[in-house]
Amino acid sequence: MAIQNSGKTLVKGARATQSTIFLKILMAASGVVFIGFTLLHMYGNLKAFGGHDKFNEYAHHLRILGEPMLPHEGALWIIRAVLLLSLVVHVYAAAKLWRRAKNARTVKYEVKKHTGAIFASRLMRWGGVTLLLFIIWHLLNFTIGKVNVDGGPTNDPYNLLVDTFDTWWLTLIYLAAMAMLGAHLHHGIWSATQTLGLTGSERTRVLAKRSAFTLAVVIAGGFSLVPLAVLTGIIEK
């Protein structure tokens, strides 16, 4: 006898923290951390336009931030810890939601149009993976490994930077990554406001979408200025 409960019974004792929406809130929270970080980081990078000393001073300042309350590099490590935790959370939640979405439609459409979606929204997942790869490379490049493809010195942040972007293909990688970052943030920032429930009206929704676009352009664009400037010789050693 086919009662409509086709094997799916009602959930008992539901908890908000076990829901997909909670995963989303985690993503948004970690995403907000990323937004904040990239904004600051981008701003810091622009110091490169100030020349060798200004930039290195900034890099140094980062390390002595909070002293003497915190030990040397204390603040930096706190930032690193928060970032790492956010990344783990962000990726974990993204992976879980990705799997759910895959399972939610195992038979694909023959034809599917994407009406009403911006392209960036469909790039989030693979875009995120690209960003992750980028970050790994980036850290190897600038922080952990300090790789200088020019074979030059690696202990001078400014010089490392300029050497890196003097190499056209490295610049290209970075610019591509920044495009991806821009796309990720374009949808991500709007998405975070929606997930956090801040867009409960048409007005706020439009505002959030516009701000997301602006912020994404500012961040990705801001980041891109330095490599471009190096490549075009505006920034030099």
Binding site: A14, A16, Q18, I21, L23, A104, T115, G116, R122, M124
Partner: peptide, 26 residues
């Protein structure tokens, strides 16, 4: 209401929303 409905939604195997917006267009 919201906690239980969302729990059932997930239990049924619907995907999570990533604010893509194709739903509202359709």
């Amino acid at each position: 209401r919201v906690v239980n409905m969302v729990a059932q939604h997930d239990h049924e195997g619907f995907g999570g929303c990533t604010n893509i917006g194709e739903c509202t267009a359709a």
